[in-house]
Simulated scan of single mutants.
Amino acid sequence: MRADKTPSFKQLLANPVQMLAFGFGSGLSKKAPGTMGTLVAIPFYYVLIKFFENGYAAALILVVVSGVWICGKAADDIGVHDHGGIVWDEIAGYLLTMYWVAFSWQNVILGFVLFRLFDIAKPWPINWLDTKVKGGLGIMVDDLLAGLMSAGCLYVLTGLL
């Protein structure tokens, strides 16, 4: 592990939990790791919607529930709560954003922009939850709420467009 407690890609390869938590390496990005993690979610969304549409809800639940453990374990292992490189929560948040809308590339992009805006700006109550809830649930909950808020906006916007 490097001095800043960020694992190397080699360390991610040796630790499946860290690999998942760091979004298959996207969380190692020096700039905007959350954005890179959200970008990683797009191919997963595409595969789910194209090949496993009937299983999307189950896959989303699996990503969210396992994410609480994955993020908590990764944070404990490196000794940093909500390390910026832990991006499994962004993956879950984006998949939640996209759950209620039909697939289109316009929705993919708009969902991405909305999710990043809510995740970065952290309006109330996202910011409150971000500071009050700890552990793996604390890492996940703000992104899930950002995903829900983004989903609501996206759903309304797709009805208007």
Rank of each mutant, 00 (worst) to 15 (best):
G67F: 08
C71A: 14
G34I: 01
W128V: 13
S104Y: 06
I139E: 05
G37H: 02
M36N: 04
M149Q: 06
D143I: 04
E53I: 14
L154Y: 07
G34W: 00
N15A: 01
L137T: 10
V101C: 03
A41M: 10
G111N: 04
M1D: 09
A92H: 09
Y99K: 14
G55T: 11
P123V: 03
D143M: 11
G138S: 09
Y46P: 02
R2N: 13
L60M: 11
N54D: 13
P33K: 05
F44M: 15
L62R: 12
G152R: 06
Q106M: 13
I61A: 14
A92F: 07
V133E: 03
L157K: 11
D89S: 06
K134L: 01
Q18L: 15
C71Q: 08
G147V: 02
K10N: 08
P123G: 07
Y99R: 14
W100V: 10
V101S: 01
V156G: 03
G23C: 00
A32N: 05
L154G: 02
N15F: 07
Y46R: 14
L144H: 05
G111K: 00
I42K: 08
N15Q: 13
W88K: 02
R2S: 04
R116G: 01
F51H: 15
L12S: 01
L20V: 12
A146S: 15
T131N: 13
S29L: 11
I91P: 01
I139M: 08
